[in-house]
Design a protein around this nucleic acid. Structure first.
Lengths: 333, 333
DNA sequence: GTTGTAAGAGAAAGCGCTTACTCAAACCAA
DNA sequence: TTGGTTTGAGTAAGCGCTTTCTCTTACAAC
């Protein structure tokens, strides 16, 4: 029932090696034989089994994509771009959501290896390095997107988080804000660390006081943003502006503000980060730091595929510039 | 370098079939031997190659998911649920975006088969049945989610679109609206057809005139929704309410209304469909028909896996009830 | 007419597993 | 003790490909 290379060979009156050669376009084949085999393949609806060819040393042409959550627009957009570029280059993507759970991540890492994917793109916060280090040692192709581990020589494609944070906070300062809060995820993400670093530096450069109570650690969900915003806005050190390190957090801020009867940007300025679709549909449209998601997705795929093809032997970090998109959630104080 | 079943066998002083038996927990193995083999596997960090075992007739434990676009929140949420349930049951998902392009879809269908995925879940509008029919004939496990082809006996999990449309339009009518527009995708999707059908029926039941000019065909993007809304709202037959068949279209309506200086719900009532995250973050929160995405994702996976495991031989349609979620985008006329 | 070389294609050995078949040892009832 | 069962484990034949080697022709050069 399933037609194999043997069926084609028999039907065409040649050996399976000849068929294999015309499939892969290798070796020498007379035009006549090639035509004949091609025609038989056609009439028999023959499709080579990728499982079999993977077993004989060829690629699976599949890459794993490990992210926290596709339902999060930022990662959904990344996933889309990765898949697009992968398709262009003949690779499929196996999607893995971990919710940043280290065990899930570790499980996936070894599962993907078992499944012989050709490479793995990681967009999650990794803390547990055991499996990761193993893979790295075996020179398993791995690349990080929107995520970095400074202590390791690895392939990375990310935005310049420090610069992005700098732009965001500078913007608020230039509007006259003095009490600026920052909401971020955990400091395991270097991106968050860099943005916080920028925040401190801008404050310092402008002679503003750094108040720890205005630095809120949370996760990346809207609910978390909302909760954190409530806390901030009800505290005595109520800020006049908030730099939310993800658009999703910013949306949470919007919701809290609305429930408290505060107007954005009149009563509160908000800057987000990522420039996902959320930024444009929220009212007022969110001023945010754009990550070049398209370019990032494209470049990680290119990077990892070059690694897979063995075309490069040196790891590299690609740091792309962010861009502050000023919309209507920020206002002169 | 790569450790295989042979290495384990040699190290443990047994044959490879014994190792295979302990891996798969089949046949009879003495406790002593099993322990010994297990220990060797452990110390050697042995992981069976799934490619090899797939070649010998076992499953790949991978399912393909074909959707229009993960960057669309509705499909992102579906993808997430599918992956979650798949993981629980030991299956990975290969993500495929087609933008509803028939060629891309056909390409993926045959590619997925070549890659020997165990089953395929489809959420796209299929028009081209050739490859699909082939697969169906070969009893290749296929299930549809949020998508149906009434002419075919297939596995389907979807919401009751007629009922959903009925609820949405009835709600608007009950608020006193008489000029109600409907915005939908193309009529190839049965879901759209059913919603339109419901729209007509509600109008009729309430003695309202059916005006073709209030029926707008578009695609599912925000931009399309915006364009369509502009057109409607500037036309002489300007409606007082719009039933947008996707939340994303509804968001487009919001944007158009805002640019035209119209207030929702004072000047225009809007009902969406899907109840994606968009509905809650838009201002005012969108009244919409909720699809039970969690349940749908869970059930397609269960359905297809039962099919894969050969536990069922009859196709079935699972039609889940929608729920009208009244928020603040609709108002008594 | 030899010899040398290149072109075209087949034979066969894997790739890392699963599984049907086989067989020796151990056990048990009569 | 004998014959019949279990039990535990090995042998070997694939699964559907790729690829190295080998071999036969054909043809050009001398």
């Amino acid at each position: 029932m399933k037609v194999t290379i043997y069926d084609v060979a028999k039907e065409a009156g040649v050996s399976i090696s000849t068929v294999s050669r015309v499939i892969n376009n290798t070796g020498r084949i007379s035009e006549k034989t090639r035509k004949k085999v091609l025609k038989v393949m056609e009439t028999l609806h023959y499709q080579p089994s990728m499982v079999a060819s993977a077993l004989t040393g060829k690629r699976t042409r599949t890459i794993g994509l490990i992210i926290p959550d596709v339902a999060n627009p930022f990662f959904a957009e990344i996933a889309r771009k990765v898949e697009d570029r992968g398709r262009e280059l003949g690779f499929n993507v196996l999607m893995c959501n971990t919710d940043n759970n280290p065990e899930t991540e570790e499980m996936y890492l070894s599962l993907l290896k078992q499944k012989s994917v050709d490479g793995i793109i990681i967009g999650t916060t990794t803390k547990n390095y055991t499996v990761l280090n193993e893979l790295l040692h075996e020179h398993f192709p791995i690349a990080f997107i929107a995520q970095d581990i400074p202590e390791l020589a690895i392939d990375v494609v990310r935005v310049d988080d420090f610069l992005g944070g700098y732009q965001a906070v500078s913007h608020l300062v230039s509007l006259g804000h003095k009490k600026i809060a920052i909401m971020l995820g955990n400091l395991n993400r270097t991106s968050d660390k860099d943005r916080l670093q920028a925040y401190r530096q801008v404050l310092q450069e402008n002679g503003l006081e750094y108040d720890e109570r205005l630095v809120i650690y949370t996760d990346y969900s809207m609910e978390a943003g909302k909760r954190a915003a409530f806390e901030l806005l009800r505290s005595p050190q109520k800020p006049t502006a908030i730099f939310a390190c993800f658009d999703s957090l910013a949306v949470g801020v919007y919701q809290a503000a609305k429930e408290m009867g505060l107007c954005i940007p009149e009563d509160l300025s908000v800057v987000g980060f990522d420039n996902t679709i959320l930024a444009t549909i929220v009212d007022p449209p969110l001023t945010t730091v754009a990550q070049p998601i398209d370019e990032m997705g494209r470049q990680v795929v290119d990077l990892i595929i070059r690694e897979i093809e063995g075309e490069k032997n040196m790891k590299q970090r690609v740091i792309l510039p962010p861009e502050l998109i000023v919309r209507h959630s920020t206002k002169q104080l």
